[in-house]
Computed example of a mutant assay.
Amino acid sequence: MVTAAGHEWGTAVALEAVRMPAEGVCALVAVGRDGSEETVGSWSAGGAGGGLVEVAGGAALPPEGIDRFEVRTAEGRRLVTVTR
């Protein structure tokens, strides 16, 4: 689950996920309606048997400027897409 809240500086973002299907470094990326991308946060994933992941961060994009969020591996492979 991804939540996003608007602020004067952009968007506060939080991710809650269980059993991410990857090992190693992953990142939550905000993809703008204009195609721009901003990394909201990153973490080290433990694979399919991993537990709860909670990551909070922010993006300079306003909430209405965000098209979707993507969870990606360090190599850029998209694992999950969350549309708004």
Rank of each mutant, 00 (worst) to 15 (best):
A22F: 05
G32V: 09
C26L: 14
L52H: 11
V25A: 14
T73I: 06
V80F: 11
T39G: 00
W43K: 08
A17T: 05
A74D: 12
G51C: 06
R72Y: 06
G24E: 11
V40C: 03
V71F: 06
P63L: 04
G65P: 05
A5Q: 12
T39W: 00
E38N: 04
G76C: 07
G10A: 01
G32D: 10
S36P: 02
R78A: 13
A27Y: 10
V29N: 02
A14S: 15
G50K: 06
V13T: 03
G10I: 02
G32R: 13
V40R: 03
T11V: 06
E8I: 11
G57V: 04
E38P: 00
P21K: 00
I66L: 05
D34G: 00
G35M: 03
G10K: 02
E8K: 09
V25K: 12
L61N: 02
V18Y: 08
E54P: 07
V31Q: 01
R78G: 09
G41E: 15
P21F: 00
L52C: 03
T39A: 02
D67L: 08
V29W: 00
T73Q: 14
R68I: 03
V55W: 07
A22L: 02
R19A: 15
E75Y: 10
P62R: 13
E8P: 10
E75L: 07
L15V: 09
A12E: 15
A22C: 07
V25M: 10
V18S: 08
A17V: 07
G10S: 02
A45Q: 10
E37T: 12
A14G: 14
A30Q: 00
L79M: 01
M20G: 09
D67W: 11
G6F: 05
G47V: 06
H7G: 15
A74H: 08
E75A: 13
P63E: 05
R68A: 09
F69W: 05
G6A: 12
E64D: 14
R68V: 02
A59G: 06
G50L: 10
V25W: 02
A4P: 08
A27D: 12
G57K: 02
A22H: 08
A60G: 08
E8N: 09
G57M: 02
E70L: 14
A48M: 14
V53H: 07
V40E: 03
I66K: 07
E8C: 04
L61A: 09
E54G: 12
